[in-house]
Design a protein around this nucleic acid. Structure first.
Length: 487
RNA sequence: GGCCCCAUGGUCAAGUGGUCUAAGACACCGCCCUUUCACGGCGGUAACCCGGGUUCGAAUCCCGGUGGGGUCACCA
């Protein structure tokens, strides 16, 4: 069996899309699973829209997800260069070959002419490919057209005796297309830049790609590519077309469905582990009941046979749940480290942190992480630990402070806390109880007002741990402040 | 419109002719845990698109509808 060589070949024309990330992941998993090579190639032949900036975004996002590549931009390799705009002579050469084989011809039609032609065809209700106007131009015709100042594009001549083309697809089985439905298509634009269908074939062949794993939207292109492989005398790779990721309305996921860029999720504080896990579950399943998978576990289990044929709706709820799961389950140091930039951004933290401050922060994160969907949510949960004062009191919290036993309770608690040598969570628990005893109350009568005074809310994490995090002075001060307010 | 793909609960999905009065997960609802909220635990509601075949037997195979989607560029 031939060695596994797969590639991810994005166009750097915008933010890195969820769908692209899944294609990259599946290719990467396939390569790792079978001990193959994962190639990263940049398809930047759309000069108008391509940019180095988005290329860099893509690379950064891949690295963030934990997907590395063996050959490709930045890392190099024996089949480079890995940017299509740096491989132009190659395409030129093979276009010449097709030209000389008469499998391609020069087309002098202008874009305007073609657009008009298409419109006319569409009006008749019979939209198909190119009319074939330039199919059989004589050298004299060509010379005349060129004298008019027209620059030719090169078109592939779709054979008319080919019948049907069968795409053998690893996820969809055999898919046949009728050759007569395929019009002659451009392989080299008039500016010498190859089109997608041509460049992809030349590159996949020259890079010895064994399996082409990509999104289903490319399935209708595949017969054209097979035609090119045949004309050039090359063996076709194996194809695997993965179904699309859909938005809530079941159309192909796009910006109007919400955040589609990987970067946006990164910025909101989604963990790469959650993203990878989620993406893998979109169109693939392990078959068992387990749904939590690390990259390593996925590598062990991934296979194309278990890739689904039907499209999958992007389910933010599930992503959110997965992310929360990873936030709760990952080592606390890891989550703390990831949290720091978000806390800085929210103005709560200035780095560098002293070791004591870091330990303190760990306690805070450990306490609040069960409330988080993403790390960006931190800002809504940590104010009471970073601020000196409690700012707003909820209505119910305010009410809780009006109970008659509150002054006595708070006075006792404040005194006990200040007298206490070290306010650990455990100590706090005892003090709460003792203060209640002094004031002649227990249970909710203790906890609700104290919580209200310390946090401004009647719900939240364990009170004893909150007290330990706040420290003696702030606890005493907030109790006193609540009392003042009540008077 | 032509061509192509797809079709199990709201969503992701298991299921490859009998063990399906159809698994699991998310979401939703209820109960428990808890000073509260959340986390967690337990339980519940909820599905084989329709019609024909094939077969002793069909969610599973075939055909036809219907529905959804993709694609028809000198974009990729």
């Amino acid at each position: 069996m031939q060695p596994v060589r797969v590639r991810f070949a994005p166009s750097p024309t915008g933010p890195f899309h969820i769908g692209g990330a899944r294609s990259a992941l599946f290719n990467w998993l396939f390569a790792r699973r079978y001990g193959g090579v994962f190639i990263l190639r940049i398809e930047d032949t759309d000069l108008e829209r391509s940019s180095r900036e988005s290329e860099e975004n893509i690379l950064a996002a891949l690295r963030w997800l934990g997907l590395d590549w063996d050959e490709g931009v930045e890392v190099g390799g024996p089949n480079g260069p890995y940017r299509q705009t740096e491989r132009l002579e190659l395409y030129q050469r093979y276009a010449e070959q097709l030209l000389s084989q008469k499998d391609a011809y020069r087309c002098y039609c202008t874009e305007e002419e073609l657009a008009a032609e298409r419109e006319a065809l569409l009006a008749e209700g019979a939209l198909s490919g190119y009319s074939g106007r330039c199919r059989n131009l004589s050298p004299e015709d060509c010379a005349r057209l060129e004298a008019e100042g027209r620059k030719p594009a090169i078109r592939f001549r779709v054979p008319d005796n080919q019948g049907t083309i069968v795409v053998r697809d690893l996820v969809r089985g055999e898919v046949s297309f009728d050759c007569s439905d395929i019009g002659d298509f451009i392989i080299l634009k008039s500016d010498g830049i190859p089109t997608y269908n041509f460049a992809v074939v030349v590159d996949d062949h020259c890079m010895s790609v064994s399996h082409v794993i990509r999104a289903e939207e490319h399935l209708p292109n595949t017969p054209r590519q097979i035609l090119l492989y045949n004309a050039l005398g090359w063996e076709t790779p194996q194809f695997a077309h993965v179904s699309l990721i859909l938005g809530k309305d079941r159309s192909k996921m796009s910006k109007r469905h919400g955040a589609t860029a990987i970067e946006q999720y990164q910025e909101k504080g989604y963990l790469p582990e959650a993203m990878v896990n989620f993406l893998a579950l979109l169109g693939w399943s392990a078959g068992g009941e387990e749904e939590i998978f690390s990259l390593e576990e996925l590598t062990r289990q991934f296979s194309l046979e278990r890739v689904s044929k039907s499209p999958a709706v992007f389910d933010l709820d599930k992503l959110n749940w997965l992310n929360g799961h990873y936030i709760r389950q990952s080592p606390i140091e890891y989550i703390t480290d990831l949290s720091i930039p978000f806390l800085e951004k929210a103005g709560y933290l200035k780095t560098p942190l002293t070791p004591e401050r870091y330990e303190w922060l760990k306690e805070v994160i450990a306490l609040v992480r069960k409330y988080l969907v993403c790390l960006d949510d931190l800002k809504d949960h940590v104010g009471i630990y970073f601020n000196e004062e409690v700012e707003v009191l909820e209505e119910e919290a305010r009410e809780a402070l009006t109970a008659p036993h509150v002054p006595a309770l708070f006075e006792a608690l404040a005194r006990l806390v200040l007298d206490c040598p070290a306010l650990s969570a455990e100590a706090a628990k005892g003090l709460l109880k003792a203060a209640g005893k002094e004031a002649g109350v227990k249970g909710k009568q203790i906890f609700i007002p104290v919580r209200a005074a310390l946090t401004g809310s009647i719900e939240g994490p364990d009170l004893d741990r909150i007290m330990a995090i706040l420290g003696k002075e702030r606890v005493a001060r907030r109790l006193a402040a609540a009392l003042d307010r009540g008077l």
